[in-house]
Design a protein around this nucleic acid. Structure first.
Length: 579
DNA sequence: GCCGTTTTCGGCCCGACTGTTTTCAGTCG
């Protein structure tokens, strides 16, 4: 069936789908991995895939060979993939769902399908209730019970959690378990330490004299709903919030190796191990071993492990095998932005639109956090749902801001607006109103369903408007809720960089938009990033920490961040932008 | 399927835990 050309995202996800289907079809597992690797390699390819294919650049990428290029070719041409079509003809779609049940991998999913004809979650549940799994080789009563629980959990929880929720849970656990007698070291590991935007489970690593008491402490914590598993070195529990916690114990000597290992990512670890192997060493969670030796190389901390493999220290946020090895080899790792670098915040709401606190309350809270300025950007007139401001309300709000400013000599409230970007890409007020603003955040709040082409044009027009200081939450996504709207994001980023319009990294934990994967592209184009809390109450200001965390993950430096500027520098930047 | 300053064939990261076994396969991270 002829279709339209696939974009990069579709091509990457198609290759990943092929990899999973290959596993489920019982093919050579290395073939499946090859497709996974190929998908990853293309994902991190900076250029345009169609151009790269035409010029022969894609052929040079490690992990992309003849077989994968064949699929890419047809996907680029008409969006089809013969490999995918053939696999989908053989493997029922429901098996992909079933593979998400904890404890069920490709082998068992295949067994269930081959022996019992199970090809959907519902059928699986029915078969468990009919006690039909126990008759199969390798299955037993406990497995059946576990699968039923897994199906239930999938339905109750998406299985993933916001960075903010997982982080808050982890902070509490670190305090409680860190207080257990005999605990020498305790650290967060896993995707939470890497600051991924959503988290599957909280990983905690402990070095302790008496591991058993540490494991016991976790199982006794308030809010433990189920103990999933418990051994000498690992305990897993599910909290009533639905968050899973994995606790591992090691010795003090092993700690740095285990911390690195359990921090991941899996892809980063694979590269590290290969790198160790290339140097005649074996790396695992217990140490770094020369060939034929039981004695590990001595490493006091993670930095020493990197050093032993001729690398500079890679901050956890960057460990995604997305360029950190090249940078760590050549000492090109950037100094990442830190919370201390932030001088103020530029996207906030007050009671004038849909916020919960007044101008003065927001200002005092921001000042107490050590900021120099607060940019107030209430909603614009088209945003009826959020009590957007008409022109006369803007005038009155500005009077109130002047009063608040007059009462503070070491802090400034900047006059801004979060202007809806209308369907045609224009802003929500006439120029003479925008002229009165210190800054403008322009955001899409409606017409999400426009075509990719029109949406792209719309946002490019908005960033090219000299009154637009910042493009707000550029994709409109809500994590675990809805995908961003269809848009050629890179084209918008390039357009913004061209005219020096800043891009927002919205720090609200539900958004974290711009995505960290795009931040590096944006800063390379020279675009400024505004880390905005989008606070609707004073407490919301502290969401900034999630924004900074994700900015770090996107290789952002203080010099890239608009609101790391001192007030005077920010003001002149805003003036220049408009000029 | 991909890769190769020992290779065009024969590898492809490694270990813990679980549940099923009676020495191990499958799953997970």
């Amino acid at each position: 069936m002829k279709g339209k050309p696939a974009d990069k995202k579709t091509i990457v996800s198609t290759l990943e789908r092929i990899a999973l289907l290959l596993e489920l079809s019982g093919a050579n597992p290395f073939k499946s991995r090859a497709f996974q690797n190929g998908a990853r390699a293309l994902q991190s390819y900076e250029g345009d895939l169609a151009e790269g294919f035409a010029s022969g650049e894609l052929k040079k990428i490690k992990g992309v060979g003849k077989g994968i290029l064949t699929e890419v070719d047809t996907l680029l041409d008409d969006g089809t993939s013969q490999a995918l079509d053939e696999l989908e003809a053989v493997v029922p779609a429901g098996l992909l769902e079933i593979a998400k049940v904890p404890g069920l991998g490709p082998k068992r999913v295949k067994t269930l399908y081959d022996k019992l004809g199970i090809e959907s979650l519902g059928e699986l549940e029915y078969a468990c209730n009919e006690n039909r799994l126990v008759q199969l080789d390798g299955f037993g009563a406990k497995t059946q019970e576990k699968i039923l629980k897994g199906i239930d959990a999938i339905r109750r929880f998406s299985g993933r959690h916001l960075l903010s929720d997982a982080w808050a849970t982890a902070d509490q656990l670190l305090e409680t378990i860190g207080g257990v007698k005999g605990v020498e070291k305790i650290e967060l590991a896993g995707s939470l330490r890497r600051r991924r935007e959503t988290i599957k489970d909280v990983d905690i690593l402990v070095a302790a004299d008496d591991p058993a008491s540490v494991h016991e402490a976790l199982t006794k914590i308030d809010g433990v709903e189920e103990i999933i598993g418990s051994g000498d070195t690992k305990t897993s529990v599910r909290l009533d919030s639905g968050i899973n916690v994995d606790l591992r114990t090691v010795t003090t000597t092993q700690f740095p190796f285990a911390l690195h290992y359990f921090t991941g990512s899996k892809e980063h670890n694979t590269r590290m191990r290969q790198r160790a192997k290339d140097r005649g060493l074996k790396l695992n969670e217990y140490g770094l071993f020369p060939t034929d030796s039981e004695e590990s190389v001595d490493c006091a901390d993670e930095a020493a492990i990197f050093e032993a493999l001729d690398l500079h220290f890679v901050p956890p946020e960057l460990r995604e095998d997305m360029g950190e090895f090249d940078a760590a080899e050549s000492d090109d790792l950037p100094p990442l932005v830190a919370e201390d670098d932030i001088r103020g915040v530029l996207h906030n709401h007050s009671t004038w639109s849909d916020g919960a606190h007044s101008v003065r309350e927001m200002a005092e809270a921001a000042r107490a956090m050590g900021f120099q300025y607060l940019g107030l950007s209430d909603h614009s007139q088209s945003a009826f749902y959020a009590h957007g401001l008409k022109e006369d309300a803007i005038l009155r709000q500005h009077e109130e801001i002047d009063e608040v400013n007059a009462a503070m000599d070491d802090f400034v409230v900047l006059k801004g607006i979060e202007s809806d970007i209308l369907a045609d890409g224009s802003l929500d007020y006439d120029d003479d109103v925008l002229e009165r603003m210190d800054f403008v955040v322009a955001s899409v709040h409606g017409h999400f369903g426009m075509s990719r082409e029109d949406q792209t044009k719309r946002c490019i027009r908005a960033v090219q408007n000299p009154y637009t200081s910042i493009l707000g939450h550029p994709t409109g996504r809500l994590l675990l809720g809805r995908d961003g709207f269809d848009i050629d994001l890179r084209a918008v980023i390039e357009a913004a960089a061209e005219v020096d319009c800043a891009l927002e990294l919205n720090a609200n934990p539900h958004r974290l938009d711009l995505d960290w994967r795009e931040l590096r592209f944006a800063t390379r184009q020279g675009a400024r990033i505004s880390i905005g809390p989008d606070a609707h109450r004073t407490e919301g200001l502290s969401d900034l920490r999630y924004g900074v965390a994700v900015a770090r993950k996107g290789w952002v430096q203080a010099g890239d961040v608009l609101n790391a500027l001192e007030l005077d520098d920010l003001r002149s930047w805003l003036r220049d932008r408009r000029a």
